[in-house]
Design a protein around this nucleic acid. Structure first.
Lengths: 339, 339
DNA sequence: CGCGATGTGCAAATCGAGTTGCAAGGCGAG
DNA sequence: CTCGCCTTGCAACTCGATTTGCACATCGCG
């Protein structure tokens, strides 16, 4: 194996090989000045032959743009954020941008500083920020937002960042549909296993459900399967009477379902359970989980699109936030309550 | 909202504010030449106050390094690749590198060209390549490998790239353990739902299982749940007699399990099923799936580590490939065969 | 007092591409 | 022949950080 420092070609060398000046080569590429078609062809052929690609660093230095965007997510390995990431990556690729991943897991402040610095150092032209596990904006985030760096919030609105465009699901509408579905089946006594209290989406979902079940008991979990399991244990231990269980996401729904089933509670005969998200697992557990499908891919795609629009316009001025429609998916976990 | 083109500070401006030359500022930062402690302090204070960060493009241009690495994966939203990505991201972050995601889904050649160009343009210093769905190296990959750009293969060896260091699971060993486990339970008639034929990991896993079940029937799927489901249908339709079913990954195992259960086959009483990977879902389905846990996080971490070592050494010379241990996880889907 | 040894700052060059003003050569049309 | 247009080259400068050669201190010590 030879050394890894094989030097790439420079524009100089291409120009020399073609017997023209760098000016001409540059203009052939940019088209900002007319170039004789024959010369252009010769140059292009040499570029292909040599496999010349302009140096990204030099370009970035001159233009002030890196053609990279960042994506800040709590944990890229989560299904949920993975879908968002894929959407962002797709759109970035379509618009010819690269994608840099910034993991915010365990909200280490040093990490946070590090990826906001990507904006400051101009390593990225903009940032898609997914704050799905944070109640409020951190100081650092506020500072960046105030400096008017191009930022788009994906999946979750952040209080205090009202001027920053966002792309979210219509949580309220989805929750309404879930509520009506179970009310129409005849349920009257419901429990809600919600997400973090204070999180915008949590508030919306609880509100939507309570439109049909004004007195539903509300518990708060952390979106993980274990948390649904534990909260269901609490419900059983306290002999809470209910026939409908709303969980703020599928993982908690599935955790709760397991716990209830282990206790001999039949789903959906004794208790109906619904989730939110429509993860892969929702259709695999038995019974299949009735849920609300969120278009995470779409959230990713649209966030990236808004962001790149803002980057290329040079401002987020006039960029509208987007609410994406959701879809009720009825499976086997819901049925009329026991009579 | 003000305009998004708020200019970052330059070193020039810091120097001017401190009443010194850029040289001095640069040297206080790099420490490559002694600087008067008082002056240094004054400069540092100004840097903090202004929030100055050196421009990435300029740095990259001068140094020839971007302090970014790339990760090429088929689909970032898959659990499997998401775990790898997280591992890579963690290690990159620890070594103070950024991570650029290159999605190779649907193996669009234009996409492929695009992320290999990241290497050529020096946007990234090296690439972690996950070829888990490809049998052979593409021309483009061969070209890049020959050009001795720093590359590490993660999760899957690629035939023809023997000089490129790789980090993989010990597929053979894991499959051996699975085979022995079912043989020890008393099974004698087995079917293998393998991955893509020709894939290195597939070959290893089949070999490992066949050590215990030399005559096992081998079918090939595409790693997706639906494919396990469909192949199980085929088995049922053809009345193939077996009491043990090996799937090359958990998703196919779960798909097959569902199909068998729908047909009234009891798991594990009538048929034992095992998978590979230990995905989240494996512990959620019922019965829980016996499987082999792969350390995807570790694969990601170690790949990134090898890569960064190679980048900083300037060559992949002397970098050793790694095989990561796996662990047999016994759950409810395996039991002695019906007598 | 003077010598070398340090410490310290400045100006200038460098990395590779993008851009501009100016000028030169070639060509066709009037 | 000349005017104007098209093509192209040249030289110079920009982007911002890093690094060099050079020079001016200042200090200790014989």
């Amino acid at each position: 194996m030879t050394d890894a420092t094989a030097k790439p070609w420079t524009m100089q060398q291409i120009a020399a090989a073609a017997g023209v000046s760098v000016t001409t080569v540059s203009h052939t590429l940019s088209g900002k000045r007319p170039v004789n078609p024959e010369t252009a062809l010769r140059i292009r052929r040499l570029i292909d032959e040599f496999g010349y690609v302009p140096d990204a660093g030099a370009r970035q230095l001159k233009s002030g743009r890196s053609r990279m965007i960042g994506l800040a997510v709590p944990d890229i390995s989560h299904w949920y954020f993975g879908r968002i990431a894929r959407g962002v990556e797709e759109m970035a690729n379509e618009r010819d941008y690269g994608l840099i991943i910034c993991s915010t897991s365990n909200s280490d402040p040093r990490r946070e500083k590090r990826y906001f610095n990507l904006l400051r150092t101009r390593s990225i032209d903009g940032l898609v920020y997914t704050a799905s596990r944070e109640i409020a904006a951190t100081d650092e985030l506020m500072k960046i937002a105030e400096s008017s760096s191009p930022i788009v919030l994906a999946d979750e609105d952040v209080p205090g960042l009202d001027d920053v465009p966002s792309v979210t699901s219509t949580n309220y509408g989805g929750a309404q549909e879930l509520g009506r579905h179970l009310r129409d089946l005849g349920h009257t006594r419901a429990v809600i296993i919600a997400g973090y209290a204070g999180l915008h989406s949590t508030v919306q979902r609880v509100r939507g459900i309570r439109e049909s079940f004004p007195n539903a008991l509300v518990l708060h979990g952390d979106f993980e399967l274990a948390s649904g399991y534990a909260l269901a244990s609490d419900l059983l231990a306290n002999q809470v009477g209910f026939t409908a269980l709303f969980a703020s996401n599928d993982l908690m729904a599935i955790g709760a379902m397991r716990r209830l089933q282990e206790a001999g509670v039949r789903v959906p005969e004794d208790v109906s359970i619904v989730g939110f998200d429509d993860v892969d697992m929702a259709s695999v557990v038995s019974p299949g989980l009735t849920t609300v499908r969120q278009d995470m891919l779409g959230i990713g795609r649209q966030s990236a699109e808004l962001l790149i629009d803002a980057v290329e316009a040079g401002s987020t001025e006039g960029i509208q936030s987007i609410g994406l429609p959701v879809e009720l998916v009825i499976r086997g976990s819901t049925a009329p309550p026991p009579s």
